[in-house]
Simulated assay, not measured.
Amino acid sequence: MVSGHAYPWDVLGDPAFAGRAAEAVDTVTLAATYHSVRAATPLHPSRRVVDARYAALYRPIRAAAWAGRPLRAAGPDWMTEKDPFGTAASTLRAAGLAVNAWIVLTHNTRLGLEHPETAVVNCFGERYPYALCPAHPEVRAYAATLAGEAVRDVAVDGISLEACGQLGLVHLGHHEKTDGAWTAAEVRLLSVCCCASCRSGWQAAGLVSDEVVAGLRAGSVSDDVLAAVLANRHANTDALRSEVLAAVREQAPGVPITFHANPDPWATGPSPGLTPSVAADVDALLVPAWPTTDASAELVRRAAATGLPVDAYVTVLPPAEADAVPGHVARLRAAGAARISLYHLGLGGPDRQKLLRIAAAAAAADG
Rank of each mutant, 00 (worst) to 15 (best):
E117F: 05
R140H: 12
V156F: 00
R152T: 10
A141Y: 01
A143H: 04
R140Q: 10
A155M: 07
C133S: 14
P116E: 12
G158K: 00
E114N: 02
E126G: 08
A147F: 05
P116I: 09
A155T: 12
H115V: 08
A119D: 13
A135F: 15
L161I: 07
R110P: 14
G125D: 00
R140E: 09
I159S: 02
A131K: 13
P116Q: 08
V156R: 06
R127S: 11
A141P: 00
L161V: 04
G158T: 04
E138K: 01
A144I: 03
L113Q: 13
V156D: 02
E117A: 09
H136M: 08
E117H: 07
G125S: 00
P134W: 10
L132C: 11
G125A: 00
L161Y: 04
E149S: 08
R127C: 09
V121I: 12
N122F: 05
A135S: 15
S160K: 02
V121T: 13
R152M: 06
P134A: 12
V120A: 14
E114L: 04
A147E: 10
A147R: 07
G158C: 04
Y142F: 12
H115C: 03
D153G: 14
R152Y: 10
L146G: 07
S160I: 04
T118W: 15
E138D: 10
A155N: 06
Y128V: 14
P129M: 03
V139I: 09
A144D: 03
R152N: 09
A144L: 02
S160V: 07
T145Q: 01
T118A: 15
P129C: 06
R140S: 12
L146V: 10
A141N: 01
V154D: 10
H136S: 11
D153Q: 14
D153A: 15
